[in-house]
């Protein structure tokens, strides 16, 4: 089909930026004013003394809250709700955590390597009890890298939409529809980056997409190991939506 006109691209941009803004869990300007709130050493040690189960529960709740905002983001992207129900679910199951990780860069302070968590800014050491030091530091490094791209809010919104509406996800039934939507979003993002004289970033985005997929794969693997090593509690401590999205079906129904 014909590529979108300038007016159509502007419409895509407006819709996605508005959708992002309306579904941000925390507005960037609010987070900016909270940067001085950092966990004290005593508070960090209290988190470090928590059990692995309690810390996993806290992080799963945090992720699940953030994902609900991503679902709202998806619903507001024009064309998403016109996809078949299977494909809406496939895209959210595969991409919602990726968008949460992308959005995390807005809640990240690269100056002191901290992220907003449970009301204050926390460094990676606060998450020690999870038993996932390697994954935690990779997530922090990813946020640091995203911050160094210095994406504007509209650029981040469009990149998030592009990550979510990925036509290469497995099990899509109407892949051509997802492809068309993704192409329009890609063109819109390119348009905004060029307009902002920021188009050198374009070449760096595919690497970020690969990092996101790798991080989500590693999260799934860590969760699988947690469920195997804590079989009695694993199914009672996680929010139902988290279980639905991330645990294997056999585990979910167990």
């Amino acid at each position: 089909s014909a590529p979108p006109s300038g007016t159509q691209l502007d419409h895509v941009i407006q819709n996605i930026v508005k959708s992002h803004r309306e579904t941000c869990q925390f507005l960037p300007e609010q987070l900016q004013t909270l940067r001085w709130k950092i966990f004290s050493q005593t508070e960090v040690e209290a988190y470090q003394r928590k059990s692995t189960e309690e810390m996993w529960q806290k992080c799963a709740h945090s992720i699940t809250d953030a994902i609900q905002y991503v679902v709202e983001f998806a619903k507001r992207i024009e064309g998403f709700m016109e996809l078949c129900q299977n494909d809406q679910i496939v895209l959210l199951k595969a991409g919602s955590l990726e968008v949460v990780l992308l959005r995390m860069c807005q809640a990240f302070n690269p100056g002191n390597n901290t992220v907003f968590f449970e009301g204050k800014y926390a460094g990676p050491e606060l998450f020690h009890a999870l038993g996932c030091e390697d994954l935690t530091s990779s997530v922090f490094e990813f946020s640091h890298g995203m911050c160094s791209l210095r994406l504007s809010e509209p650029e981040l919104a469009l990149f998030s939409a592009m990550v979510l509406i990925s036509s290469d996800r497995m099990w899509l039934q109407e892949r051509y529809k997802v492809e068309k939507l993704q192409t329009d979003i890609q063109l819109a993002l390119k348009h905004v980056l060029q307009r902002n004289r920021h188009d050198t970033v374009l070449a760096k985005l595919p690497l970020k997409v690969m990092s996101l997929r790798s991080l989500c794969g590693r999260h799934a693997e860590k969760l699988r190991i947690f469920c195997l090593t804590h079989p009695l509690v694993a199914h009672s401590i996680f929010p139902p939506l988290y279980k639905e999205l991330f645990t294997l079906e056999s585990e979910h129904s167990a």
Binding site: Q68, V71, K75, M81, C84, Q85, N86, D87, Q88, I89, V90, L92, K93, W171, Q173, P240, L241, E244, L245, E249, H252, S253
Partner: peptide, 24 residues
């Protein structure tokens, strides 16, 4: 293929699909 997603009821509810999967 679609069978693997038919149990995702919470996500369906969040998406506003009260009646579950229909022929997808």
């Amino acid at each position: 293929e679609s069978k693997s997603h038919q149990k995702v009821t919470l996500l369906q509810l969040l998406l506003g699909h009260q009646n579950g999967a229909k022929g997808n």
